Simulated scan of single mutants.
Amino acid sequence: MEEREEIIVRPESALSKNGQFDLRRRPLQRYKERKRNKLVSDLAAQLANVPQFIEAVGRSREKVLDISKEVAEKIANGELVFSRKGATGEAVGILRDAKTGKLFTQLPIKEMPLELGSTIASAGLSLKMQEISNKLEILDGKINRVNRNFDLNRYAEVQSAGDKFKVALLTKDTNMKKALLL
């Protein structure tokens, strides 16, 4: 069997000119990594809203027309009627005279989703909740750092007291021994 040599390829940004790991770039890399993780976390929090959003967009829509009062009265009286598509029978924004069938006017029709507001509100709410969660994680990290510093400080005080006690036992001078034991 042939022996094969394994080659490890690292990205150039992690290596310095002489091929060693560059410690100066590590904080920047960790910052970019945290930023990327935050983005992924924010997107993952919004994934729960996607089905609700798609369902709200797919529901029935309301047709909105901007017409004058006179045109509305003529529609209500039956003088004007909406033109319909031949294949589907769906009303379009063209008004025709009911008797002659002549084109009267063309109206712009806008489709408005009926229940999209609650979906947008829930997406905004989950985004704010994710922001609060991120801030709490940052606060938790800072609290853990403070607690670690307190623990290290207590440990250092115990070590220092133990060292003073050992020095006091080895010292022959009584005044010095008394000062170290106090």
Rank of each mutant, 00 (worst) to 15 (best):
I67G: 00
I120D: 01
T100W: 03
G124T: 02
A14T: 14
K35F: 06
N147V: 14
L182M: 07
S126W: 00
F104I: 10
N134W: 00
I54E: 15
K110L: 04
A98S: 13
R36F: 08
L65D: 09
S68I: 04
Q52N: 14
Q46Y: 02
E115P: 02
D22T: 04
Q46C: 04
Q159T: 13
Q20E: 11
A72R: 05
G101T: 04
D173L: 03
N37V: 06
K32A: 06
T105N: 07
I67W: 00
L28V: 04
E5A: 12
V146F: 12
G86N: 14
R59N: 15
L127P: 01
L15W: 06
K17C: 11
D97P: 04
R148W: 08
L103H: 14
S83P: 07
K38E: 02
A156G: 13
P27V: 01
F165H: 05
I54W: 12
V50A: 09
R24H: 05
S118K: 09
I7C: 07
P108F: 03
D97I: 09
L95C: 05
K172N: 13
E157I: 11
L170V: 08
G117A: 07
V71W: 05
T171Y: 03
K102P: 01
F21G: 09
R4G: 05
G141K: 06
K128D: 00
R145G: 12
P27H: 10
L125E: 04
Q52R: 14
K178G: 05
I109L: 07
K172D: 15
G93Y: 01
G78A: 10
K142S: 10
L125M: 06
E33T: 05
A121S: 03
I109C: 02
I94E: 03
A76F: 07
L43R: 05
L65V: 09
D97C: 07
R30Y: 08
S126D: 03
L15K: 15
K102T: 13
K172E: 15
R10H: 13
S118D: 10
N175K: 13
G89S: 12
I138M: 10
V146K: 10
P108Q: 05
S160A: 12
S41E: 11
E33L: 08
G19Q: 03
E62A: 11
L182S: 14
V9N: 12
K164M: 08
T171C: 12
L103N: 13
K38G: 01
T174P: 01
F21D: 11
R84A: 14
E115M: 03
D163N: 09
L39Q: 09
N18K: 09
N149Y: 07
G58L: 14
R154C: 12
L39F: 08
D97A: 10
V9Y: 09
E115N: 12
F165V: 12
A98H: 06
P108S: 04
E5Q: 14
E137D: 11
N134S: 13
V167E: 12
N144Y: 10
L169V: 11
V64H: 04
Q106A: 11
V167G: 03
L125C: 01
K99F: 08
